[in-house]
């Protein structure tokens, strides 16, 4: 098997806020192989976005501090890299699409300008070439009248169109890794399906690895090869997509799956596990899920379980999972 495109090892990102230290990414490890799609799931606030941002080097500093760990992109550790080195990688070898297409584009520049500047930032090409490539990419993400759209301002496009533009921008430089942070959450159902379909096609065509962050297990089922479940800044379970749906081992994962009324409806939010996400400022000792865990016992409260290989490619962090 080829080396992973992205290999995150024991990454620890803390946010030093005025109220205290938030361990938003708490010793996270994950990897994605070339062409593979890893779905990162978990309730709101569990650290998915922060994990993604630390990969592309956009953790807000302050308050964020990378406390430890490695982020290997094609075997090359990104953590010690300078700002300028990271800038060169961003948008070129790795790219990111954000959740809110309505606000993720600069409202006072044309679509064309925003596409072209990405290319011009990374490639020594003429403006004419940049223009041509941008138009081609717009066509590739199935934007009708691509040539004319180049001169449009973001507000003249629908949400779905804007997300296509975002995807086009991300893919312009043919990155090895695309991070999509809830790319469809803000869109209506039909558009969501179209965007997911587009992503699937493009992934096949460009052969890039995809880190797909989502709340929606329906999306996971459709898109992912493997799944990593995050809870309170930690990865609590990771496995192949079929395995996780068929055989969830962590009580949190089980809770997530149970909360889906209909797998086909990708909209359902994960909100039906009793209790709330722990305050990351005051994590409980032991397993951080125990306050909400139906099967917690004394040990869970005292000692933190580590990720343990339960089956090939299937890991979970639960004292009771191996039982």
């Amino acid at each position: 098997m080829a080396d992973p495109v992205l290999d995150v090892r024991d990454l620890h990102v803390a946010l030093h806020t005025r109220r205290g230290v938030i361990h938003a990414v708490d010793h996270v490890s994950l990897h994605i192989d070339p062409g593979e799609t890893l779905a990162l799931v978990g309730e709101s606030g569990c650290g998915k976005t922060m994990t993604a941002l630390s990969v592309i080097g956009l953790v807000p500093k302050p308050p964020g501090v990378i406390e430890g760990g490695q982020v290997l992109l094609g075997g090359d550790d990104l953590v010690p890299k300078s700002d300028e080195e990271m800038r060169r990688l961003r948008g070129d070898r790795m790219a990111m699409v954000f959740q809110e297409p309505m606000t993720s584009l600069d409202p006072v520049f044309t679509i064309g300008a925003q596409l072209m500047e990405t290319l011009l930032a990374h490639r020594a090409i003429s403006r004419a070439d940049a223009h041509a490539q941008s138009v081609a990419m717009l066509k590739r993400v199935q934007i009708p009248e691509a040539e004319r759209r180049m001169d449009n301002y973001p507000h003249e496009l629908s949400g779905g169109m804007r997300q296509r533009v975002m995807i086009a921008i991300a893919l312009l430089c043919r990155p090895d890794l695309l991070i999509a942070d809830e790319p469809t959450t803000a869109l209506d159902v039909t558009t969501q399906a179209q965007i997911l379909e587009l992503l699937r096609e493009l992934r096949g065509e460009f052969g890039m690895a995809l880190l797909l962050i989502t709340h929606a297990l329906g999306v996971v089922a459709e898109m992912a090869d493997r799944v990593a479940v995050m809870y309170a800044g930690r990865v609590v379970e990771t496995a192949g997509v079929e395995e996780i749906f068929a055989n969830p081992r962590h009580p949190y994962t089980k809770g997530l799956l149970a909360s889906i009324p209909d797998l086909a409806d990708g909209q359902e939010r994960l909100a039906t596990i009793p209790g709330t996400v722990p305050n990351l400022l005051h994590k409980p000792p032991g397993c951080c899920f125990w306050p909400r865990c139906p099967i917690a016992e004394a040990r869970c409260r005292a000692q933190e379980p580590a990720l343990a290989e339960l089956a090939p490619g299937h890991q979970a962090a639960c004292w009771k999972a191996s039982a």
């Binding site: 800038r87 790219a95 954000f98 990405t118």
Partner: peptide, 25 residues
């Protein structure tokens, strides 16, 4: 605003982000 993060994610230089995009807005 969100779009500033996008601009960083695109790998633009900080100067360009501040003096073109942020300033114009």
């Amino acid at each position: 605003q969100d779009f500033v993060r996008t601009l960083h994610a695109k790998g633009l230089r900080r100067g360009r982000i501040i003096y073109m995009h942020v300033l114009k807005n």
